[in-house]
Simulated assay, not measured.
Amino acid sequence: MVTIVLLAVLVLSGCTDGGGASDPATESVAPKDPLTIETSVDDGASSVPVDTVVTVDGFDGQLSDVTLASQDGKSTVAGDIRGVRWTAEEFLEPGTPYVLTAVGTGDDGKKVTSTTRFTTRALTLDEQTYPAVAPLQGETVGVGMPVIVSFDLPVKDRAAFEKRMKVTAEPATVGGWYWLSDNTAHWRPKSFWKPGTKVSVDLALNSVPAGGGVYGQQDQHVKFTVGRSVVSVVDTKRHQMTVKIDGKVRRTIPVSTGDASHRSRNGTKIIMEKHESIDMDAATTGVDSDDPGYYNLTGVKYAMRVTNSGEFLHAAPWSVASQGNANVSHGCVGMSTANAGWLFSKSKRGDVVRYVGSPRRLEPANGWTDWNVSWGDWLEGSALQGDADAA
């Protein structure tokens, strides 16, 4: 009887040892994997499109550093690591050899470095459109100044470009883009700038597809400041100009404007250019030298252009007798040399000059005519259809 009991105990003990947990000291550990790095561009690739967004993925580990730079080291492409992927934040330069270096650590604890070399497709100047910006870097402008971007080749994909064209301001200012053509876009505030506003224009257009096999040639970054408010009103019927500076009338000036055959145009105009002295040839406005209305004046002082068609504010000592009582010019606003010099000294690009009293209307795009477009119509001129931003 005793023998049977002991045997049963031994049998039970044997079953327990065979089915219990394994000894940690003798358990085998699965090996951890090394880091695998994959790039979106093949090593040795040539003619890589300039609008390629380069990515790097790291599997079975973590990327710690990725650099993408031209082979000569003169330019780098910024990027950001999120999760297992690094993504470039910029497009590529044409016809450029690049070196892509990725570094990370695998789950096995070992460091891995991957190097990829490739070259982008070369582009001719006929395949690149250059963005020129006004105002100029560091310029102080008037409260009516628009941001003007001019392209030397047409932009067919306006929306793709506009998404990368940013205007920011301090204080924040509501405004929007308006495309006059495939070659020109303007940004203006909903109402005149507040004096003292600091404005930044950032065009991230380098290598952005413009359509038709054309790409953006360059980014642009321009900062400018809005100066004090100078707003003038030219009353063509009363033959006078009232000049307000920061909202206060500073001077009322007798003037002569366009005669019955050459009416000055009604509307809100912007000072586009300033010249202490300029030659004025009527031929540049389409008047033939045989025309009775032809003129060729040299050394006209204190001239400020307000239309493409040739309207200026300027000194006109030859018409002083008519200033304040008759319109005898070919469309320009003439005043005494003293008054013209005073106005010239107070004015800058972007100042506002509003014309009233004339039966002739200002044509669209005959100068910087942005303020003659209603805000609703202005928003419709955006390639993004009415998206207004607080700059």
Rank of each mutant, 00 (worst) to 15 (best):
residue 235 D to A: 14
residue 315 A to F: 02
residue 318 W to Q: 09
residue 129 T to M: 05
residue 13 S to F: 15
residue 21 A to G: 14
residue 242 T to P: 06
residue 25 A to E: 14
residue 53 V to M: 09
residue 223 K to Y: 03
residue 285 T to H: 02
residue 63 L to G: 00
residue 163 K to L: 09
residue 210 A to Q: 08
residue 304 M to L: 03
residue 36 T to M: 06
residue 271 I to S: 13
residue 105 T to C: 08
residue 210 A to C: 14
residue 43 D to L: 05
residue 277 S to D: 06
residue 66 V to F: 01
residue 58 G to V: 07
residue 32 K to W: 08
residue 24 P to W: 01
residue 76 T to A: 12
residue 378 W to C: 05
residue 92 L to A: 00
residue 294 Y to V: 07
residue 62 Q to R: 13
residue 118 F to A: 04
residue 129 T to S: 13
residue 387 D to G: 12
residue 240 Q to G: 09
residue 380 E to P: 06
residue 16 T to G: 02
residue 56 V to H: 01
residue 181 S to Y: 05
residue 383 A to L: 04
residue 60 D to T: 07
residue 341 G to Y: 11
residue 116 T to P: 10
residue 116 T to I: 12
residue 362 L to W: 04
residue 12 L to A: 14
residue 199 V to E: 08
residue 273 E to Y: 04
residue 385 Q to G: 14
residue 18 G to W: 11
residue 82 R to Y: 03
residue 337 T to V: 09
residue 99 V to M: 01
residue 387 D to R: 15
residue 266 N to K: 11
residue 22 S to Q: 13
residue 331 G to E: 01
residue 113 T to P: 10
residue 379 L to H: 11
residue 388 A to Y: 05
residue 387 D to M: 13
residue 134 A to V: 05
residue 132 A to W: 07
residue 380 E to Y: 05
residue 288 D to I: 03
residue 238 R to L: 15
residue 345 S to V: 11
residue 87 T to F: 01
residue 359 P to S: 14
residue 111 K to M: 10
residue 148 I to P: 07
residue 98 Y to V: 01
residue 183 N to V: 01
residue 80 D to L: 10
residue 264 S to R: 04
residue 191 S to W: 11
residue 155 V to L: 13
residue 308 N to F: 03
residue 21 A to E: 10
residue 210 A to F: 07
residue 216 G to Q: 04
residue 382 S to L: 10
residue 365 A to I: 09
residue 85 R to V: 06
residue 296 N to P: 08
residue 76 T to D: 09
residue 77 V to M: 04
